[in-house]
Simulated scan of single mutants.
Amino acid sequence: MKEAIVFSGPKVTIHDVEFPTLPSPNHLIIKVIVSGSNPKDWAIAERVPGLNQGDDIAGIVHSVGEDVTDFRPGDRVASFHEMLSPHGSFGEYAVGRADTTFHIPQNVSFEEAATIPLAAMTAALGLYQRLGLPPPWLATDQRLPLVIYGASSAVGAFAVKLATLSNIHPLICVAGGGKSFVETLIDRSKGDTIVDYRIGHEEVVTGLQNALGGNEKLKYAFDAVSDKGSFENIMQVMDHLQGKITLVLARKKYEGIPDTVDKTFTQVGRVHSSNYPGIKGEKPSVGPLGDQEFGALMYKFFERGLVKGWFRGHPFEVIPGGLQGIEGALTNLKAGKASAVKYVFRIEATEERRENHL
């Protein structure tokens, strides 16, 4: 079967590899119809090159382990592949774990489903396991200002969608070129607003202050950017004694965030394990469940939302060429060219004539 391997650059080569085997009785093998992509696909390859970095699987179940009870061959599924493990979604077949896999209802395309596994779970972990905000099934009836920095990114947009399901308002969304998309997600009647980061750092801080109103200090922030002045701007309006911020990049020092601020990292790989390479130690989750149990619960929640129609994927762009399109897409992700869109790949579009064989 064909598989794409990502190197620093990013550079991508396509190889013939052995068909995967089930790593455990709790895994399943999935024929990949569509693979999603994420900025971490090029970023991790800078320091861990030579892997199939794809982690967003959407396809059809080929076979299941003996302990898998919720899925069977032929099912339409999406799955969050275990990061840095073999047989990711940049291949004709991939391996997923049953507890981070969910059914795709017939009204949802493989393309849409491929936008969900990694990004939506990152948003859920950040909101509920790191910031300790009320989940949708315990929606709040109190005013609860929340800044979501990078709201047009996939992670940020899913954070907006989930926060809305939790009745968290006002949502103060920081976005740029994708702000027209973010506008479709918020509710102005509940005080939600958008601050355009392109106006400059001082103006962003002023916009955040105006959105809070008066002398109110911010207590909750989800920083889906964690770079380019994002957390520094947030600190200008945050309560330094009671504030909480969660960040998506764990390999930074974050100078400028006082020790009195509750700072956590949202590392989505924790729904699989707290021991895989690259996980940074941090405080235990504030929720009643561990991250692995929470992850299994939330994928069931996403599935039900897709069936009922109150949860949807992210806007997507199908990149031509299947696996051959990955290098160009990752290059664009590295350059920051993707706004309010996820790049996805239809694996069957891969052309045989451009293979690089082992």
Rank of each mutant, 00 (worst) to 15 (best):
A221C: 13
A211E: 06
K219T: 05
V237G: 00
V248K: 06
V268M: 13
P277V: 06
D262Y: 07
S226C: 12
D259R: 12
V268H: 02
E232R: 15
K280L: 02
V204S: 12
Y254W: 01
Q209C: 07
F231S: 11
S226A: 15
Q267S: 00
K228F: 08
M238L: 15
K217Y: 02
I257R: 13
E216A: 15
L241Y: 06
F231W: 06
L218V: 12
D239N: 15
R198S: 01
D262N: 08
G269I: 11
Y276A: 05
K263F: 08
V271E: 12
R251M: 07
G256R: 06
T246D: 07
I257W: 14
I234Q: 00
E255S: 09
V225W: 15
D259E: 14
S230K: 08
S226H: 15
K263D: 00
R251G: 14
I257Q: 15
F231A: 10
I234D: 02
G207D: 01
H201A: 03
T246A: 05
A250Y: 09
F265W: 11
Y197G: 01
N215F: 09
S226M: 13
N210Y: 03
Q236H: 08
H240T: 00
M235G: 07
L247R: 09
Y254K: 01
H272W: 11
Q242S: 09
G214N: 06
N275A: 14
K217N: 04
L241S: 15
T266R: 12
E203I: 00
L241Q: 14
V268G: 01
Q242T: 08
L218C: 14
H272N: 14
K252R: 15
T264Y: 05
K263Q: 09
